[in-house]
Design a binder for these strands. Structure first.
Lengths: 188, 188
DNA sequence: GCGTTCATGTAACTGGTTACATGATTTG
DNA sequence: CAAATCATGTAACCAGTTACATGAACGC
């Protein structure tokens, strides 16, 4: 059982669903490819954490609906209070920022300006998703025991993190504007 | 050339160094294992991006010091303005937060309280690193074209992100305290 | 006609982790 | 006397990506 398997299992516990559903639900919060989802699902089925049944459809491909077993329920029950495996972040921009001294001041600033553009785009996408969510629950969200609640709090987190990152980029650009100041004393 | 290879190459361009040095410099900002560093370094050498020479030492193991070639310099010159490959974040806690509705209100709050503890620890480590950095440059950092500058701005970013995450957790706990309110209108 | 959504799967590959292997010196 | 630091490397494995494979329905 790896981290993603737990996520898949958890998604199934919120209600029976297909691999395709799981993929679409996880996508905004964890990058996943269908190839991996389907592989892990068949492993979960082999280990009897889930069962599946084929649902025939007309006009569109048939689908396999997965449901969780008792064994599966027990597994994710335990998962929640297991310590988390350390998060991994791999961001090419972090490396560029670290090595920013290899560039001159103008090029460095340009790099951070481009980053801000990228972050503003992320902000926009995040806001769009929040709006879609708001519409899908008709502007009212009172039950925290629904997937919509999880989606809502995570979108809020990403949005605020993005704001913070934009402010940080602006601060760095500001640092790069100055010459010969003591950066350690520069306010953020 | 993958992302990490560029990072390694960039580290070498800041000055000749060993695989061990590279590992220690990258560690605070990108998780790396020595096994991978050494493998990529030998690839970079095969492709003539870097050269190495053995430095014999007494009382401690010999080391291999790498230096960048013209080909390598050209490569990382181009790298800076190439669009970044999308960042990947894999955080088990994000999945738990998404699926928080599977738990009752008390257990959910407990999960976020534990998260805050974890984040406070992260904050502490980050502050320690900032202090170490401050000492190592004797409280004065005026040159942005040094690795210390990159280290400084990234530590600041992580610290502020951590503050933001703590506030977010507190906000979520607050949401979970209430019963039957419209979460979408709850201030953050 | 062309791209998107729905829907599932396999095979080959790359990137990254864990474990094995060695060994002197310093610090608590 | 144990653990950490310095220092490098290989082999087996696992997780994740890319590419291959299929195909109907629907909107632009």
């Amino acid at each position: 059982m790896n981290t993603l398997s737990y996520g898949i299992l958890g998604m199934i516990q919120t209600g029976p669903c297909s691999g395709y559903d799981i993929m679409n639900n996880l996508k905004p919060f964890r990058e996943v490819k269908h190839s991996q989802i389907y592989r892990l699902l068949s492993e979960l089925e082999n280990e009897a954490y889930v069962t599946s049944k084929l649902v025939e459809q007309s006009g569109r491909p048939n689908k396999k609906i997965y449901d969780i077993t008792e064994k599966g329920k027990k597994e994710i029950e335990e998962w929640f209070f297991k310590p988390n495996t350390p998060a991994t972040l791999r961001d090419e921009f972090v490396l560029k920022a670290y090595l920013i001294g290899l560039k001159n001041s103008e090029e460095a600033k340009e790099l951070f300006r481009k980053r801000i553009e990228h972050l503003r785009n992320k902000e926009r996408i995040c806001k769009e998703r929040l709006e879609v969510l708001q519409e899908s629950c008709e502007g009212v969200l009172t039950d925290f025991q629904s997937l919509a609640f999880g989606r809502y709090i995570l979108l809020r987190q990403v949005l605020h993190q993005t704001y913070g990152d934009i402010r940080w980029c602006e601060w760095v650009i500001d640092l790069l504007e100055k010459d010969n100041i003591n950066f350690l004393n520069y306010p953020f």
